[in-house]
Structures are given as C-alpha cells and as structure tokens.
C-alpha cells in the first residue's frame, strides 16, 4: 500500500489537522478506557460465576490495557507519513499530559518500580 502525503497549502489546513490530532488522541484513549471499564465489569461478573478463570481474565485485562500503546504508536507513524500535522497534534497532546504528570509528581510522591508489583491490585493501577 502506497501512502500518500498531504501537502499543506495554508496555515489553516495545518491548524485544522493539528486540532484533529488532539481530538483523535483523546477519542482513541477514551475508547480504550471504556473498553477497559467494560472488560473490568465483564471479568467481575465472569469471575463471580467461575473463579477458575482468573488467570485468563487477568491476561485479557492486561492485553487490553496495553493496546493503546500499539494504537498510539501506529496512529502517530501512519499520520506522520500521511497527514503530518495530525501526528504532531497527537504527539503534542501526549507531551503536554506527560509533562503535567511529571509536575504532579512534585506533590504526589511517585512510587518506585521495585515495589510496584505489590500495588498492581490497588484501584487506579
């Protein structure tokens, strides 16, 4: 499949695609978050009736939670090759949230990874 790269003629086109990138980043993550929540509810119901499936359920949950990695990397590379400013919008959104997270660590006190195994059952992880 030959990917065709969009040529931007005006500033408005660039801004438009940049905004699409920001929206796309949020929409992608929202979809995956909803899938995660849905799967979590499904797994709870399933485990209530059949506790033996816990290993399968935790593997499925983990796989779904890492899908955004694949989706985000794939989308950024795809749009980088086709509609560059969408990719830039996605990257800028990621960087903004990442930097804000680092800033929040000033008052939250991040946990070291050596003890994270014990935190995996906590809510929000």
């Amino acid at each position: 499949m030959k990917l065709e790269r969009k040529t931007y003629a005006t500033r408005n086109q660039k801004v438009g695609d940049f905004v699409i990138g920001i929206a796309l980043w949020h929409v992608t993550l929202l979809i995956f978050w909803l899938l995660n929540v849905g799967l979590g509810i499904g797994v709870s119901v399933l485990l209530a009736s059949n506790p033996d499936l816990i290993a399968l359920a935790s593997t499925a949950t983990m796989l779904l939670s890492c899908l955004p990695f694949v989706a985000q990397i794939g989308l950024v590379i795809y749009f980088g090759l086709t509609r560059y400013w969408i990719a830039l919008g996605m990257l800028a959104t990621f960087a903004l949230y990442f930097v804000l997270t680092l800033c929040a660590m000033i008052i939250f006190g991040a946990a070291c990874f050596a003890i994270l195994g014990g935190l995996s059952g906590s809510p929000g992880f």
Partner: peptide, 10 residues
C-alpha cells in the same frame, strides 16, 4: 498505557 499519566508511579 493509562498509568503513564498516574503521578503516583515513577
């Protein structure tokens, strides 16, 4: 992926 934005995790 979502834990990248959790300030409680390094």
């Amino acid at each position: 992926f979502f834990t990248i934005f959790d300030p409680r995790i390094g």
